[in-house]
Amino acid sequence: MRLSKLLLFIGLSVFVIAMVSWTITSIASEKNNGIGTVSAPASNEKTEDDAVQLMYDSLELDEKGLSRDAFHYAIYGFKKLQEKGQLQNDSILTVVDFDQPSYKKRMYVIDVRNLKILFHTLVAHGKNTGKEIAQFFSNRKESHQSSLGFYLTDVTYYGSKGYSLKLKGLEKGVNDNAMRRAIVVHGAPYVSESYIDEQGYIGRSLGCPAVPAELSKPIIQTIKNGSCFFVYNKKYRPSVPFRPEAEPA
């Protein structure tokens, strides 16, 4: 137990140091080069990669089903948003991994400051995205498909699906119609183990990342008001500024 706590502390320390170093060098590069999209110099790449890997290992994300590629993209985008001051809540990162089938727990709400997984649960994709496997994605209204990429969580409200959380899509042509499409986090009775037992996979939404009804309020309360929300699939092609110079293999 003591060793585990020590590893978590070391992982957090290395990650924070790497993020601070990355931000400082990025800002300096912007001033020197006059460009908006930059990457850390080669001398920092190993340190950052090691920090991300240590964080990934400390959280045991491999055992929990989240791919290294998904986490790599998530952390890169999180850092970009943090650097630009767009995160009101920069301690929370949500990752939805639509490479996994819907009968798997594929939503991860992570406290990046304290290296804790706060929620690891089921999450629905759109009905036209696929059945148990997510295959098709769209940014169009009425497509009833999920959209990939980075979002900022917005405000809460009570609507036809109960307590819900608006999402602001940040990637042009990828998910920037999210508000117009009313893509929100909400609870749904079809996101449950009983549905899996009955049909082999959970129910599907109209494009929203719906979560189990009993977890919807605590999840929404945790991630609302300006945290990073990332939806991944191997078909994801990040837009500027979310395109790492060295993308995952």
Rank of each mutant, 00 (worst) to 15 (best):
D49G: 11
S160F: 03
G169W: 02
L66S: 03
P238A: 05
P41Y: 09
V231D: 00
G207E: 02
Q100W: 04
K217Q: 11
F119M: 08
S4V: 07
E45M: 15
T222F: 03
I117P: 02
D49S: 10
G85T: 09
S67K: 01
R237A: 06
I92M: 11
L3F: 00
R113D: 13
I183L: 10
Q199G: 07
G169F: 01
Y190I: 14
V109S: 05
Q100S: 11
S91W: 11
F150P: 09
G200V: 12
F15V: 04
V191L: 10
E30D: 09
I110L: 02
N177W: 08
S67L: 06
S91I: 04
G200S: 08
E83G: 12
G173F: 09
K168M: 11
V95H: 06
S164K: 02
D90I: 02
P189D: 15
E132C: 10
P241Y: 13
F78I: 01
I92C: 09
F9I: 09
A40V: 14
L115M: 01
L6Q: 08
G162T: 07
K84A: 12
A124I: 01
H72K: 15
K116H: 00
K234N: 07
L8V: 10
L66G: 06
R180K: 12
L3I: 03
G11L: 05
V184I: 10
S91D: 08
L6P: 00
A178T: 05
K80I: 09
I220D: 01
D62H: 10
Y73K: 09
V211S: 00
G226Y: 03
L215K: 04
E132T: 14
L215C: 04
V109C: 10
G173V: 13
Y232Q: 07
L7G: 00
N177C: 03
G162V: 10
Y56L: 02
P248I: 13
L12I: 15
T23R: 15
S160V: 05
I17E: 13
V95W: 07
S13Y: 14
V95F: 08
E193K: 15
H125W: 01
I202R: 03
S21K: 13
T153W: 06
S102G: 05
P218C: 05
D176T: 08
N233C: 01
S194I: 02
V211Q: 00
R140E: 11
P101C: 03
G77H: 12
G173S: 04
K217V: 11
P248S: 12
S102Y: 01
M107G: 03
S39F: 13
A182Y: 05
M107L: 14
K64L: 14
M55D: 06
T222I: 06
S13I: 13
Q82W: 15
